[in-house]
Design a binder for these strands. Structure first.
Lengths: 292, 292
DNA sequence: CGCACGATTTGATGCGCATCAAGAACGCCT
DNA sequence: AGGCGTTCTTGATGCGCATCAAATCGTGCG
């Protein structure tokens, strides 16, 4: 399916993190530690899934991939404002995306796990809307958008699938808005963990145990909380037996308890590219104290 | 440009607000008071703009419009979860969209002014993602999506334009996230007013004076604030001479002052369908006290 | 191996804004 | 006009969470 783990670093913007030294010794790439998705599990593949799951489609897909890129922690894939040319699929590792914000630091806008698509929303803008950087060693598939468009000519449904993916993004943003406006710190963090869990599960990884590759600060930034609050809430969860944590490793012990805290079921977050005609949302009422 | 103000109410879901009585007397429709956009100013028209602005295109556009719908305050256009069939363009009046939320009320997800498009993001989901209802007497153009798709076949760029509009929505959601995570109540409200102003201006209405058709409660809900806070902030703005208010009418007196409060320039909100290759965002530093 | 710097924790303190509780000012209907 | 429900306003109070400060841990490095 893949082979040849080409180590590209050709277009390397001035961001090299301190640990980007080439021959650092420890653990060479090629065999990547973390979870890694097969092409058939990747969001990119879903772009042409509707036409059938045959070998031919896989071949079509392979043809649009320009190259793979291997990133180390902190390396930047693209920056906000750069001219848009490619979308990316995460093959292994994880990334965060963020936008610089006025005077104070940045706003983390999302985390991206193996099998997920990156930057499709830049299509309509002509330039990337945010900066993407690796949270850990990661590999990506780059897909030049013009090739994807060509593919769209051959396979009419690809266009529709792109709309679908973007629509899924908007749906996700809606949920984030609810989270920010109506939920306490506790509920936000619970929802965040459930979201991660569901996304791992979706690609075939363990839903109950996974690594948090981002820092507490990043989580807090993303959720609109101070990092101290994130820490305190995590501790609270652990004290209540909802999760157990060792360093950056998290294990969910009481899924239902978390769902109760979050005020929503796990599946309700990130409904990505799944049309459910009749579903009208939650029922579970629970919310400590937050607005009317 | 239009004529025949057909008063349709055929598909009227069980929501009739208390003031929906038919022959209530006062002020018949047909002549609408508020701002009203010409077809050439409408977001729908922008869908095929790139092919040229000729008469032929206008004719094409007219062909896809199924009918106009006239709504009274509180009437619902579509509900979350209903099967998606049409997108809508606001011709006059204004709407709000919202999603029901677990135990407590709803989350207002947006307001929609004349010339703006509604529900395009439902394309990828197959069902509407939120409920839309009129804030005041309003008229809409309904466009069945299958007809829009047909148009897409005739005019290839329509597809691209749809991506563009959705991408603009995602960009807007990103800004909302920053607003919620990093800004104080004061900054949020200032940004909200600037956003409204820019949107009115964009369609050719007065940027400095307009009506707030939504209630303070709706504004607060949308921004993640209590309605009391909205009121207090508005008063504060007025006391400082930034705006002046009479009932639901608002006049912006000091645009620059508001921008300083919001911590961003007016144009930075809602950059809708405008690609700006090199723009990297703000510079104005200002934020009273909010996160790191 | 021990140094240094960043990430993680924990506690103390205070501010921003939600919440509660009335009252005032509409808009709407009879 | 007069009544009434809804929205808007204003003040008092308290809680949630940001902020500040400082210790500890982890990790890459010389």
């Amino acid at each position: 399916m893949d082979s040849e783990g080409e180590i590209y670093g050709p277009w390397q913007p001035p961001s090299a993190p301190r640990d980007a030294a080439r021959g650092s010794g420890r653990r060479e790439p090629a065999e990547l530690k973390g979870p890694q998705v097969a092409c058939s599990e990747c969001a990119l593949f879903a772009l042409c899934l509707p036409v059938g799951v045959g070998e031919a489609d896989l071949a079509l897909l392979e043809r649009v991939i320009k190259r793979r890129r291997l990133l180390r922690r902190g390396e930047v894939v693209f920056r906000q404002g750069e001219r848009f040319h490619s979308v990316y699929a995460v093959k292994s590792g994880s990334l965060k995306t963020y936008v610089p914000v006025d005077g104070a630091g940045a706003q983390v806008t999302g985390f991206h796990l193996p099998g997920e698509l990156l930057a499709l929303d830049a299509v309509g803008a002509g330039c990337y809307q945010y900066t993407a950087s690796a949270l850990e060693t990661a590999s990506l598939c780059e897909v030049p958008f013009d090739r994807l468009e060509e593919l769209g000519m051959l396979v009419p449904n690809v266009q529709r699938q792109m709309l679908r993916v973007m629509s899924g993004q908007i749906r996700q943003d809606l949920l984030m808005q609810v989270l920010h406006c109506k939920k306490t710190a506790e509920a936000r963090l619970a929802a965040f963990l459930l979201d991660l869990s569901a996304r791992f599960a979706r690609r075939g990884f363990a839903a109950a145990e996974f690594g948090l590759s981002m820092s507490r600060g990043d989580i807090g930034n993303y959720l609109g909380l101070a990092k101290e609050t994130v820490i305190r809430m995590l501790r609270r969860f652990e004290d209540r037996g909802l999760v157990s944590m060792a360093r950056k490793r998290l294990r969910i012990r009481d899924l239902y308890g978390l769902e109760r805290l979050a005020g929503m079921r796990a599946g309700e977050l990130r409904l990505f590219e799944t049309a459910r005609p009749g579903a009208t949302a939650a029922s579970a009422a629970r919310s400590p104290r937050r607005r009317t």
